[in-house]
Design a protein around this nucleic acid. Structure first.
Length: 593
RNA sequence: GCCGAUGUAGCUCAAUGGUAGAGCAAUCGCCUUGUAAGUGAUAGGUUAUGGGUUCGAUUCCCAUCAUCGGCUCCA
């Protein structure tokens, strides 16, 4: 959350709305306990410990009560108190007492995060409610527009976000400066819902997840598989043109492999239980790296072989706790567009430069032009020599600068085995998604004792860089669906054009035109059902087919097709070959829309 | 995994302590259509699964599974 937001009126408004809500809840449940209630993006929440689960009816009641409290137009009054006084005021509020302890000791804020200095304890009073609170707030409850607030839903949340703590009931609300803003926000939610990849996945017949197969295991239907195939084909071409070699590796590997890699030590809770065969334990792979390393190690490597870039769309399986699965975004089996770069230390900066610009090109090709980078550096506990870390971090940062990319540094946010760059893209409605990751690994080359022979005839340890550009292909597909709202650009659309004959007598002509377009590599179908043209257009619109080519008497006579885009735009009649050229050009240029 | 909600036809949803209904989709006709739904008929369900209460359960209760909204965790 930005500092700008924290100083805004909107922030104070939402914070104030949270207090008003807490008052309304406590009036309804006098024995209820309050936890914390901060503003968040688009709204606020407040956590409560209540005698019974809240219902949607309760929310309506609470919301109505909030409007009444707002009407009182009672001032928010700040008061600084001693810890002793605070304890007295909140004597029957155990969560507040815990917060006061934290405040008094200094050290932690209301979220349990460490803070440097000991803050002053303050309380805010408004109407019949007092809260331990740092503020700031609006001048009075009346400054909240009663028609610009709405309680959204109830959800469970652990006290202080720790799953060992009791679970509280969290009420999410939204609050805006004006009813219009609220309306606009609700409209935005509706729009996001229309783009939901789970809904579009069903409507466009792209994929499904079957109970009988298992939760988090994706079935790609022909339409979805078509998009994936096209995306992968592009991906493959780009990799081949850029010095990657493709490899294929198995889905399972012996426990010995995972012992060496260390995964059984630090990743076991994410791995499926082993399969036992001939007294050997085999594990489904959660990552591809050990296999690629084994390929590297299958022979003696010379500095002349480096950099080596091994790429694979490797399908991995990771155990995810039930309750975290989410459509394509969070699954148990997925395919990473994985690659491992092995290089000599002297080649490392160039290799980083290359992989970053390659990643950016890939993302941009899929229509993601708003890209932000996050550089994560050495954490407290880390393997690898400090100067390796320093060199690697310097190379990553230099590459970011050269790529002229906005980036944010997460000090100490790297994995224990190396620093990394994550790339996040903004989709068409402004949501950020993490896709690419470029990650150093100082751990595995050591564990697998990887070497290469230098000019001087000595063996040295290579650098290893792990990268995934689209990340998980399943997840990437989900993001792509939401980004385009199901209306894939022509180059990715499962069906690019549908020919719509007006009457049966136009059928032969329609098929002839289709054949000509298909011969040019276009994905074209003829809608030969005995429905009216209007119905066929409606159907094609629902399937989000980029082009509808209507043919009737006029077109048949002229050797033309009448072109309508899915946007409703009419391009008018044109010769079949002209449309072919237009469509082929759009495919080649990856034109959007 | 945790909290809460939900699970009825392919989809979206009704209804009921006495074995379920609509619209869309599907199938088969009729219509031969000019830029987002022409029309008729037919078919489609062991009401998620397994127990329990009851003369009788899809409805009430319990468990399991799954989904949804969150939390935690994360590609």
């Amino acid at each position: 959350m930005s500092e700008q937001y924290e100083e805004s009126k909107l922030y104070r408004l939402r914070h104030s709305a949270a207090h008003v809500m807490a008052q309304a809840v406590l009036e309804k449940f006098p024995e209820g306990k309050v936890a914390i209630g901060p503003p968040i993006e688009d709204g606020f929440y407040y956590d409560f410990d209540l005698p019974r689960p809240l219902t949607p009816e309760d929310l309506e009641e609470i919301e109505a009560r909030m409007r009444e409290i707002i009407k009182h137009d009672s001032a928010f009054v700040k008061e600084e108190v001693s810890a002793e006084e605070a304890r007295h005021i909140f004597a029957d509020q155990p969560y507040k007492l815990e917060l006061i302890d934290g405040l008094e000791e200094g050290g932690v804020d209301e979220h349990g995060n460490p803070v440097d200095e000991k803050p002053v304890i303050s309380i805010y009073k408004s109407d019949a409610f007092v809260d331990l609170c740092r503020g700031p707030h609006l001048e009075s409850t009346g400054k909240i527009h009663p028609k610009a607030i709405k309680l959204m839903n109830v959800a469970g949340a652990y006290w202080r976000g720790d799953e060992h703590n009791p679970m509280l009931q969290r009420i999410y609300g939204t609050a805006w400066l004006s009813p219009d803003d609220l309306k606009q926000y609700l409209w935005r939610l509706e729009e996001a819902k229309k783009r939901d990849h789970r809904k579009l996945g069903r409507e466009l017949d792209l994929f499904s997840i079957s109970d009988d197969v298992g939760s988090g295991l994706v079935l790609w239907h022909p339409n979805g598989a078509k998009v994936r195939y096209l995306a992968e084909r592009f991906w493959e071409d780009e990799h081949l043109r850029n010095g990657y070699d493709f490899v294929y590796t198995p889905h399972i590997g012996k426990s010995d492999l995972w012992e060496i890699s260390g995964h059984l030590g630090f990743y076991a809770e994410n791995m499926y239980a082993p399969i036992e065969i001939e007294d050997q334990q085999y594990y489904l792979k959660p990552m591809n790296c050990p296999f690629h390393i084994e390929i590297y190690k299958s022979g003696i490597r010379s500095y002349r072989d480096l950099p080596m870039r091994l790429a694979e769309k490797g399908t991995v399986y990771r155990y995810e706790r039930s309750g975290v699965m989410h459509g394509l975004m969070r699954v148990r089996g997925f395919t990473q567009d994985d690659a491992h770069h092995f290089c000599a230390p002297s080649q490392m900066p160039d290799e980083i430069d290359f992989v970053l610009s390659f990643s950016l090109n890939m993302l941009r090709s899929f229509g993601f032009n708003d890209i932000k980078a996050y550089l994560s550096t050495r954490p407290e506990k880390a393997v690898g020599a400090p100067e390796q870390w320093r060199d690697a971090e310097a190379a990553l940062e230099a590459a970011l600068k050269r790529a002229d990319l906005p980036y944010h540094v997460d000090e100490g946010g790297g994995a224990f085995y190396g620093p990394k760059i994550d790339l996040k893209v903004k989709d068409a409605i402004g949501r950020e998604w993490q896709l690419s990751t470029i990650q150093f690994d100082f751990n595995l080359p050591e564990r697998f004792d990887m070497t290469y022979i230098e000019e001087d005839g000595q063996a040295y340890r290579p650098y290893m860089i792990h990268r995934a550009l689209l990340g998980s292909i399943e997840r990437f597909f989900g993001v792509l669906i939401e980004h385009y709202g199901g209306a894939f650009p022509v180059w990715l659309a499962p069906i690019q054009a549908v020919i719509i004959p007006i009457a049966d007598r136009h059928m032969d002509y329609a098929k002839k035109a289709a054949a000509e377009l298909k011969a040019a590599g276009l994905r074209v179908e003829v809608d030969d059902r005995s429905d009216r043209m209007n119905a066929k257009i409606r159907d094609a619109e629902k399937k989000k087919i980029p082009y509808m080519l209507v043919v009737g008497d006029r077109e048949m006579e002229q050797g033309q097709v009448d072109i309508r885009r899915r946007s409703g735009e009419r391009l008018g009649a044109m010769n079949v070959s002209d449309f072919k050229d237009l469509a082929v050009k759009e495919v080649e240029e990856k034109v959007e829309g």
